[in-house]
Design a protein around this nucleic acid. Structure first.
Lengths: 106, 106
DNA sequence: TATATTTGCAACCAGATGGTTTCATAAAAT
DNA sequence: ATTTTATGAAACCATCTGGTTGCAAATATA
């Protein structure tokens, strides 16, 4: 199944998981404690996040720690870049208009 | 039906529509010409984009122009902010390590 | 060695999703 | 007045999605 970062972050539970493990690696059990759904449901989400390389596994005995691959998040930032340019341009244009009005008042 | 901007941008066709109308407003027909699917399928995507206020309609005779509401895109930027902080911190830490190594070489 | 814990996977299921075709409505063109 | 054009909505359908329960494998503990 093809996985895509945009599809991965579409689900609110997955965004919550991302936020949870952003600061420290966690095991599936520990993550699941924060949600109402079963451990297996969380496990499925973790699989999807792993498939698109948003998280990485680190085995430690029988426990598996999941870490956020923050680098991958930059892909969204990169995609946003084109639109950021647009809204910054618009802001500057608005700024010009406002300063022109200001000058006219003087 | 509840609509969410993250769900809206999850679909590749919708992201393409967003990119298309980012620079100039377009009618559903004109937008649909750029895709292999039917005009009605594009119309459905436009409905979803409208529902989460990513696009706005402007009637002009029997034509309807769809405009991107670039402001709405900032919501994603805002969500990314927390992670941007993390990756910038990590970069700075790496930077410190590197400059320490440099000093030691001297 | 026997038992408990941690985990992933398979099978199943209801509901959402993205697509199609068909139809209705309104505005423009003939 | 009739036809063409632009559009949205409804009905339908195959597939995807997120959830569940049950099971198997591996590691830790008694």
């Amino acid at each position: 199944m093809r996985r895509d970062i945009f599809q991965a972050i579409a689900d609110p539970t997955r965004r919550a998981i991302i936020a949870l493990i952003a600061l420290q690696a966690m095991t599936p059990n520990a993550i699941a404690e924060n949600f109402n759904s079963t451990r297996q449901a969380v496990s499925k989400h973790l699989r999807i996040l792993t498939e698109c390389q948003l998280v990485k596994q680190q085995q430690q005995g029988r426990e598996i720690y999941y870490t956020l691959q923050i680098e991958k998040m930059k892909e969204i930032d990169k995609w946003l870049e084109q639109y950021r340019k647009i809204w910054e341009t618009r802001f500057n244009q608005l700024d010009k208009v406002l300063s022109t009005i200001k000058k006219q008042k003087k």
